[in-house]
Simulated scan of single mutants.
Amino acid sequence: MTNSNDCEQVLLKFYAAEERYLAADGKNFSEIASTLHPECVMHQPDSLPYAGEWHGHDGFERWMAAFGDTWASLSVENPTFYPSGTDHIFVRSTVVARAKRTGTDITWPLLQMITVRDGRILEIQPFHWDTVPITTAAG
């Protein structure tokens, strides 16, 4: 079992790396990769432009490229962490983003269930309240 404080620290590092990756237009995946377990999995709803399950560092890098094709900038604001007493941690936050295609600024609530193993992110399962505003903003 991973310490909940360790989970929070790896997630904060991931969120910051994700923000810098988008700001640099996808030029440096290595900082994100350093937060990911080799067997990592990202799940995204079918309704989003970057839908699917993305496995391993290669899959996650492809997901980040698709994500970066959608968002010019994105930040995870005010994350609140809810440790589960296991390797899972739940994170409630607000996402603030600017769509690349439309230039639309959007804010949405997000809940994520994240599994951390060996001090790195193993799995991310986001739960979106409503993906329609997200896909509309994305164009």
Score class of each variant (00 low, 15 high):
N5K: 13
D6N: 06
C7N: 14
Q9V: 09
V10H: 12
L12P: 00
L12Y: 00
K13V: 08
Y15F: 14
A17E: 11
E18I: 07
E19Q: 15
E19W: 10
R20C: 03
R20V: 09
A23N: 12
A24C: 04
A24P: 00
D25G: 02
D25I: 03
G26M: 03
G26S: 03
K27L: 07
K27P: 00
K27F: 02
N28A: 09
F29C: 02
I32N: 03
I32D: 08
T35A: 12
T35V: 07
L36C: 08
L36F: 10
H37R: 04
E39D: 15
E39G: 10
H43R: 03
Q44T: 12
Q44A: 15
D46K: 11
S47M: 10
S47Q: 15
L48C: 02
L48Y: 05
P49T: 04
P49F: 03
A51R: 11
G52F: 03
W54K: 01
G56K: 06
H57R: 02
D58M: 05
F60V: 09
R62V: 04
R62I: 04
W63S: 06
M64K: 10
M64W: 09
M64D: 05
A65T: 06
A66M: 15
G68C: 04
D69L: 04
A72F: 06
A72K: 10
S73W: 07
S75E: 08
S75N: 09
E77Q: 14
E77D: 14
N78E: 14
N78G: 09
N78T: 12
T80Y: 05
T80N: 11
F81E: 05
Y82M: 12
Y82E: 09
T86D: 05
H88K: 11
H88G: 03
V91E: 01
V91F: 01
S93Y: 05
A97N: 06
A99Y: 06
R101H: 07
R101M: 06
T102E: 09
G103F: 05
T104K: 15
T104W: 13
D105S: 14
I106S: 13
I106Y: 13
P109Y: 00
L110T: 01
M113T: 06
I114K: 02
I114Y: 01
I114C: 05
V116R: 00
D118R: 09
D118E: 15
I121K: 01
L122A: 12
L122W: 09
E123G: 02
P126H: 00
H128E: 15
W129K: 13
W129Q: 15
V132I: 13
V132R: 14
P133L: 07
I134N: 10
T135G: 08
T136W: 14
T136F: 15
A137F: 03
A138C: 02
A138D: 00
